[in-house]
Design a protein around this nucleic acid. Structure first.
Lengths: 231, 231
DNA sequence: CGTTGGTTTGATGGAGATCAAGCCTCGTGG
DNA sequence: CCACGAGGCTTGATCTCCATCAAACCAACG
């Protein structure tokens, strides 16, 4: 666990994260409340049930937000991409696990202090509101993806979503990218079994929609077909 | 469609909705930007794809937020209870349908004007942020409810959630309440077929967990069992 | 009345979970 | 350097749960 003073100057998300809404001075003030932390793939940032809550902005890498039910099955509730914000500011205890799915770097703040900053800087509140609306939208897309759809639709839809997330231009998907998630994670996210996810990848490859390149690499050989299969 | 000037004075959610964070004067100013509207069960408040977006606070009744996919199947993404807020302020077009599932009353604002109000009144931004966090949490609970669970778990979990929502005390469920949704709506929400939902209700009644009283009424005869079945 | 929309119940088939092996791909240590 | 495991991934066989089709039922309402 590496900790550092914040160095906003060369932060890769300095003009996309919530804090980008602040002036230089305000940002400096905010930066003194938190610290940076490096996470290796698999490291836990927040644990469900923790008393002292915190929140964080993701600088690089990727996080998953998940809950584990009684019988130990993990359900992924959300993926967080760089510039994303995690943490439950208004809740005394945290409800979900937040774990790095890739080597990552985050900017961590104690919840109470961040809350005070939100009260102090209206622009920060508005930026978070906007981000929160996006999260809510993403969350609803996931609900859409999971409910009453066949396995092939879910997997195809998921691959498209990841391709869009991987691409720089928001609208057109990347032709070639690395999946941040393991098969098990994808299964947990889509509400399928690992085997079914694997079989759908096989089928998509056989149908010529994608090509698997290594364990994690995906090439979209026929995005239109993929789109159609996601229906 | 009935329209009225806003009358905050005797509004039933005047101290729970987002606008409750405002002072009397501020609230008066905000109220001049919007108007009230009555909705009958089944009336549409916002339609997906509408150009001029608006947002609204629910005063009484219940709304559903849903999307309809290509083949006409409706997926319910969220239920909105009184004091809840709906609308996509930051998006040029609305993505989802918002429909009343019970006779309702709302306070409607044009999105651009409301956005200006948010910028003008920092307290409003913070209140919305809090509400948005709650929505996000509810949305994630729904994801949890839908993913990789059996039909009986989903229905039992849903009934418990509705019982909690119907109860005044947030923690303990109401023993007797009316479901706001039809079987079809529940099916759309849980990702099941109408028939399966009906069968699960039948099974829960046979097992002694609930009793159906009329088409919509539910009595929890054995909440512990229900809890266990929801696992 | 008949009609209409929601609900229940039954019978059947199929999609996907589960169980069970094999199979790559690393990383570790002999 | 190769052997050896340990995870993660793939593939196959079987079985279960739920969607689908179909029909009866019920209440509200014109």
């Amino acid at each position: 666990m590496a900790r550092d003073a914040l160095a906003c100057a060369e932060c890769p998300v300095r003009d996309r994260a919530a804090c980008s809404a602040l002036t230089g001075d305000e940002r400096g003030e905010l930066s003194r409340l938190g610290h940076r932390r490096l996470l290796k793939r698999g490291d836990t940032l927040f644990r469900a049930g923790e008393q002292e809550t915190a929140c964080a902005t993701l600088i690089r890498g990727a996080l998953k937000i998940s809950s584990v039910d009684a019988d130990g099955v993990e359900r992924i509730l959300s993926l967080v991409h760089p510039a994303g914000f995690v943490g439950e500011m208004f809740s005394p205890v945290s409800h979900h696990e937040v774990v790095a799915v890739a080597d990552s770097e985050v900017c961590v703040f104690p919840a109470d202090r961040y809350e005070r900053a939100v009260a102090q800087f209206p622009a920060l509140a508005r930026a978070l509101l906007r981000r929160s609306a996006e999260d809510l939208f993403a969350s609803r897309c996931l609900i859409n993806l999971m409910g009453r759809r066949t396995a092939i639709q879910r997997v195809a839809g998921f691959i498209l979503a990841m391709a869009n997330a991987a691409s720089s231009s928001p609208c057109h998907p990347a032709a070639r990218f690395e999946l941040p998630l393991s098969r098990g994670d994808m299964a947990g996210m889509l509400g399928l079994s690992i085997e079914t996810v694997s079989r759908q990848f096989g089928r998509l490859e056989k149908d010529g929609a994608i090509r698997r390149e290594g364990a994690r690499g995906i090439r979209l050989t026929n995005p239109a077909l993929l789109q159609r299969l996601a229906s």
